[in-house]
Amino acid sequence: MKNKAKNGKRCWTISYVDRHNFHVDILSAIPNNLTEEIAITDKNNNEYYDITSNWEISNPKEYYNWFQEISKYEKHKRALMESRAIAAENVPYYKVKTPLQRIVQVFKRHAEVMFEQKMEYKPSSIIITTLSTKAYRDINEIDDFWELLKEMISLLENKLDFEDGQPCVLNPVDKRENLSIKWKEEALQG
């Protein structure tokens, strides 16, 4: 690790020693009753030290399923299996890279470079992934990667949601969760 784990407002960040500035965010959460949802810890919540029904909720499993469906993961996995004549159980998850996954990687890298000097303004991975996936959903298949990238860029701004007249990014599988809450908090501080 580059430094000790950073205990943030919602998650712990572990930065690794590498030339790519690789890090992983670990969100502390607890199960939310008998559903697939989780209750998210947030140090800004007045009830942070008490387990109550007033914690923010999320559903990462449903979000994952939404992403997989739109990225057409199973279709790309089948194509990989056929091209290499291998059985499904012999295709590790990480070996399948859909066009959407590659686009998200490009956008995340772009954000790293673009905001290198002001990382506090860099959009979070979940925002990049959500907007990209919403744009990708509206595109007919384009085989040329650069054409796909250009089309995605042209659609991104129109994928923002609005709450109280302000732009935001809501969780597409649960509109109660505002993924861009950081924007609102920064606006209140600024």
Rank of each mutant, 00 (worst) to 15 (best):
I40M: 11
I40L: 10
I40W: 04
I40Y: 03
T41F: 12
D42I: 05
D42T: 06
K43T: 05
N44H: 08
N44Q: 07
N44P: 03
N44A: 09
N45S: 09
N46K: 15
E47F: 10
E47A: 10
Y48C: 03
Y48N: 05
Y49M: 11
Y49N: 10
D50V: 01
D50E: 05
I51A: 06
I51M: 09
I51E: 11
T52C: 15
S53R: 05
S53Q: 10
N54R: 08
N54F: 12
N54C: 04
W55H: 08
W55T: 02
W55C: 03
E56P: 05
S58G: 15
S58Y: 03
N59V: 02
N59I: 03
P60V: 04
P60K: 05
K61D: 12
K61N: 15
K61A: 13
K61I: 07
E62L: 02
E62Q: 02
Y63G: 00
Y63D: 00
Y64H: 13
Y64K: 13
N65L: 14
N65M: 13
N65H: 12
W66D: 04
W66E: 02
W66C: 05
F67T: 11
F67M: 06
F67S: 03
F67K: 05
Q68I: 11
Q68L: 15
Q68D: 08
I70F: 02
I70L: 04
I70K: 02
I70S: 02
I70M: 01
I70Q: 02
I70Y: 01
S71L: 09
S71W: 02
S71H: 04
Y73R: 10
Y73L: 08
Y73N: 06
E74S: 12
E74T: 12
K75A: 00
K75G: 00
K75W: 00
K75M: 01
H76R: 13
H76K: 13
H76N: 14
K77N: 00
K77C: 03
K77I: 00
K77E: 02
R78S: 13
A79E: 15
A79Y: 07
A79V: 11
L80H: 14
M81C: 11
M81D: 01
M81Y: 01
E82V: 01
E82M: 10
E82R: 13
E82C: 02
S83L: 10
S83Y: 04
R84D: 13
R84G: 10
R84S: 11
R84E: 14
A85N: 13
I86F: 09
I86L: 11
A87L: 15
A87S: 14
A87Q: 14
A87V: 11
A87I: 08
A87Y: 09
E89A: 12
E89Y: 09
E89Q: 10
E89R: 12
N90K: 13
N90S: 12
V91K: 12
V91T: 09
V91Y: 15
V91M: 13
V91G: 09
P92R: 10
P92F: 07
P92A: 14
P92V: 07
Y93E: 09
Y94E: 13
K95F: 14
K95V: 12
K95D: 15
K95Q: 12
K95H: 14
V96A: 06
V96C: 10
V96M: 11
K97L: 12
T98V: 07
T98G: 04
P99D: 07
P99S: 07
L100H: 04
Q101K: 07
R102Q: 14
R102Y: 03
R102L: 14
